[in-house]
Amino acid sequence: MPVVEMIGKPIHINEEGFLTEYNEWDPAIGKVLAEQIGVEMTDEHWKIINFLREDFKTEGETATSRRVQTVGGVPVKIQFELFPKKPAKKMAYIAGLPKPKGCV
């Protein structure tokens, strides 16, 4: 697995660039990841990222768009506005989590 430096810290990522170690992430890293894919973070963006981080802790897998809507309370339409084109992947990437595995 490649290791990259982000804001002075060594960070483990996979071949696609997603973080592989849950505990290496913090909001400052999240901000760097967001910048790298052209997302400017607002409170609304952080609400979703924080939900994903918390949900992963209990579920052991990354929430899908559907779950972000039904459990996280952010409608799919808003997710597409905040993270255009590929919300589920972009949200997971910024949250330092694996891509969601669920089909829906």
Partner: peptide
């Protein structure tokens, strides 16, 4: 596990399915 730093890998979310 390697400790060699590599260049950042950034996924190309916006253009890959254009």
């Amino acid at each position: 596990m390697t400790t060699t730093m590599t260049a950042p890998i950034v996924p190309n979310f916006d253009t890959e399915s254009e």
